[in-house]
Design a protein around this nucleic acid. Structure first.
Lengths: 222, 222
DNA sequence: TGCTTAATTTGAATGTCATTCATTTTTGAA
DNA sequence: TTCAAAAATGAATGACATTCAAATTAAGCA
């Protein structure tokens, strides 16, 4: 009984904090994906999360810190959804190819992503951190299988993250046509040591549909 | 005599404006490369250029606008210096390889560049705009010569710009070792359709020294 | 040379936040 | 119920980027 009594009150605070943190991440996501990271104000985020303006700072060191958490959450959600689908592929190289394409399509088609694209080093690093464990695994597997020829999977994926955001920005701004998605995938596959022909073939394989956003219950957003 | 008389007073304003503009770009470069773009204040830049704080805005729309001009100037200076050296290469692919390596080394070794690296989409686009004419020419020549196999030189170089900044940022932050420069060059050459072996060989060729910064008189800085 | 208008420059004032911090509120044990 | 500690609050602070009314300068004209 003693443990139960001490556990309950202790849990209250922890639970509220968890709820507040969750509410802040969600509010941050909503406001930032509507207005962009810079134009989002801490005031509005705090109000939407129903906490005082100062409270945000007992959960996050700064606005940028919150933005990083928000972005990593979005990316992890996408990474997990991708990961539920790729087991259908026989070719290990296709795991990576599909991941790249999916990120590019999300970044250029989803209106909520567009606002987040500026501050590209923040979002590129969020992709790297959240999707990296999956992507680097795929790169290494495909290299072991002899499909890719790379020596440093981490560096390779880092380059791919930044390049992807660069392409996505230009497609969003209509400097590049939407068809640049295909060519970007081809180039990033070439970067892994595939020939132009191999890369083109791999990039043109059909893509399975992704499970819906909210299917990732552990990492819900929206 | 008439033309001389009207030319003189007219020239006075124009001359002063040219001087002011130059002074502002130079001051912007000095302050931004010392403190970083965000921490540089318009007040300090104006003071260093010896104009009123408001005057900056009759030359540049905003702080970011000034930053873009400053960065493009730095990049153009480097591009021109690179261009004076590459005629010594027989292989057209080497033009591009040397350019990529030189940018990476400048970005990671020069203390003044480090501060400019954050705001990566600004600097990546500055590289693209200033060095693009040279780099895209090199990419297309090397493709015609059968060394590279790409279909869209502009897109390819855009990806390379963002990837380069991503690598430079991590090397600067010591997340990646300086040796990542070599591997980045190799990967970005593979991206152009070279095999791993071809890319490694090309990346390892000796590099000639660059002419000094101030040798580019048309585009002087510092 | 002096007069006049248009263009340019000026820097103090404005407005917008991110962040801080003195108070207030809540918590949980006694 | 009482109390000390922890958390939350939101008004106040400070730091700029940008604006704008006033001052200065330029240059055509008599």
């Amino acid at each position: 009984m003693e443990t139960l009594e001490t556990a309950q009150p202790r849990g209250r605070v922890a639970l509220r904090q968890e709820r507040n943190r969750e509410a802040l991440v969600l509010a941050g996501y909503k406001v930032m994906s509507k207005k962009g990271i810079d134009a989002a104000t801490m005031q509005e985020i705090a109000e939407l999360a129903d906490v005082g303006a100062g409270t945000v700072y007992s959960y996050f060191k700064s606005k940028d810190d919150l933005a990083v958490v928000v972005l990593e959450r979005v990316m992890l959600n996408l990474a997990i959804r991708i990961d539920t689908v790729i087991f259908t592929f026989a070719d290990p190289a296709q795991y990576y190819a599909f991941g790249i394409r999916t990120v590019l399509e999300a970044a250029t088609r989803d209106r909520r992503w567009k606002q987040l694209l500026y501050r590209s080093e923040v979002i590129a690093n969020a992709i790297y951190n959240s999707m990296g464990p999956f992507a680097i695994r795929d790169l290494e597997n495909a290299t072991k299988a002899g499909r890719f020829k790379i020596t440093d999977a981490k560096l390779t994926f880092k380059l791919a993250c930044f390049a992807t955001i660069g392409a996505a920005l230009d497609i969003t701004k209509r400097v590049l046509p939407p068809s640049a998605i295909d060519e970007t995938v081809v180039r990033l596959l070439c970067m892994n040591g595939l020939s132009q022909e191999e890369a083109t073939e791999l990039a043109s394989r059909p893509c399975p549909p992704l499970p819906p956003e909210n299917s990732v219950t552990e990492h819900k957003l929206k």
